[in-house]
Design a binder for these strands. Structure first.
Length: 399
RNA sequence: GUGGAUAUAGCUCAACUUGGUAGAGCACCAGAUUGUGGUUCUGGCUGUUGCGGGUUCAAAUCCCGUUAUCCACC
């Protein structure tokens, strides 16, 4: 399928572009499985490795589209479950889809609602065909299965739809993890057969928890369907011990085809992304920059710290010295701390703007290190500053 | 001037009647947060109980004095 559209401004669709769904591997790191790539969507190219900000309810919390464009953000997340409840699909049809509704001209990936099976576990009931949710807003019951999820994502008009999966918590019994893989595979097959929006890509999701044999069975089952434009590693960071996360990512990534983008869902922290890229992962999303911003935690090149700490009361330095984000260009830590402590809206906006720039800056530096053959040094530095054994932000002289 | 009330953690207040290790909420400090329920969770610090004296084995608590603040009356 070729779409030839001329778009001005923030849109990223050139006059001529490769077939939608094309994933170009532009450069491979000689020492690891890391690569630089480009995924072509109906709303333009997405360069990888990529970080995708989470915009659950048709907005990245506190941030305007132009602020994300200024960071060269090429793709956002939206959420099927949340958008189906509010504003609802009648609104989405009236506005002609999510892009136009929120005025975002670049790519959007929609999560299928599968994660809410995990995160809203007290509000849902599983059946073999799908999940009954009790709305977290008004308690009304709604059913979501593979068919429903894909229909919603079609209405949303996302560039990448995710299959509806079951994401079991950890710990859970091996039998339950096995059953979740069965359901995920059966649902993935159904999702693959549903009608899509024009140019919409669909990604499969590998579940299997901490069990290598289940992960392998799930990955092979998805590949056998031969229907997906990319593959995601799901069910990560759902309660398992931290030391089990990266080995699971490694073994799952190895099962996925080199010529398709690999997406590690929900992760995460800088060091986890750097390690995952080394294992061949291309795409990430995480609520961390925006959620932690709301709690007053700021990311810097020296680690992270809490602006709310009393130690920053009289501090006239910016959130991060040398940073060019809108918050750091004008405001002091002492002022941002005051805004956060008084509950002023500008406070969380400033920390979110800063954190998001820190995330895109991190990805930009990682790409540059790959281009220049310096990825190993970049990984080592990332692990030193942010890794699980890092000294911590306090050690970074308040920066 | 007279009468009454109050005084306990940074703040708002418990505990006093009936003497027995002085607590809570908020605030503060630290940590958590991974396909978002911005309101969450987990820890931690904080006291010459206004001051001085007395009674008692033991006083925030009972007694006397004193200071400050508030209220009412003159």
């Amino acid at each position: 399928m070729k779409i030839s559209t001329s778009v001005q401004g923030a849109g990223r669709v050139p006059d001529f572009m490769p077939e939608i769904g094309t994933f170009e591997v532009l450069h491979e790191d000689p020492g690891t499985k890391a690569r630089l790539g480009r995924l072509w969507t109906a709303h333009g190219p997405v360069d990888t490795p990529v970080f995708m900000p989470v915009g659950t309810q048709a907005t990245v919390k506190t941030m305007a589209p132009w602020e994300l464009e200024a960071l060269n953000c090429e793709i956002l997340l939206g959420n099927t479950y949340h958008l189906n409840i509010r504003p609802g699909m009648d609104v989405m049809e009236r506005f002609g889809g999510l892009h136009r509704f929120q005025d975002w001209k670049r790519a959007i990936l929609t999560d299928s609602g599968g994660y809410q099976v995990f995160s809203l576990t007290h509000l849902r009931k599983m059946t073999p065909d799908g999940v009954w949710f009790q709305s977290h807003v008004d308690g009304t019951k709604m059913f979501m299965g593979p068919k429903e999820s894909m229909a919603i994502q079609r209405t949303l008009g996302s560039d990448i739809a995710m299959v509806f999966d079951e994401c079991p918590p950890c710990p859970c019994t091996p039998e339950y993890a096995c059953q979740a893989v069965d359901r995920t595979l059966s649902w993935a097959a159904k999702c693959a057969q549903q009608p899509r929006a024009a140019g919409q890509l669909v990604f499969g999701i590998v579940q299997g928890g901490v069990h290598p044999e289940l992960r392998e069975r799930c990955a092979k089952g998805l590949l056998a369907l031969g229907a997906f434009d990319g593959y995601a590693i799901g069910g990560v960071s759902v309660g398992e011990p931290e030391e089990l996360i990266m080995p699971g990512v490694r073994m799952t990534a190895d099962l996925l085809p080199r010529e398709r983008p690999r997406y590690l869902m929900g992760v995460g922290q800088f060091w986890q992304m750097a390690e995952s890229v080394a294992l061949g992962v291309d795409m990430f999303d995480c609520v961390m920059p925006t959620r932690l911003a709301r709690h007053g935690t700021v990311f810097t090149r020296q680690g992270r710290y809490s602006v709310r700490a009393a130690a920053n009361r009289l501090d006239e330095r910016p959130l991060e010295e040398g940073c060019t984000c809108p918050a750091c260009r004008r405001f002091s830590r002492g002022y941002v701390r005051h805004l956060l402590n008084t509950g002023e809206i500008l406070g969380v906006r400033l920390t979110a703007l800063h954190n998001m720039q820190a995330y895109f800056d991190f990805i930009a530096r990682m790409r540059q290190s790959l281009r220049e053959g310096q990825f190993e040094a970049f990984r080592a530095e990332t692990a030193r500053v942010y890794g699980p054994d890092a000294a911590g932000p306090g050690a970074a002289a308040g920066a």
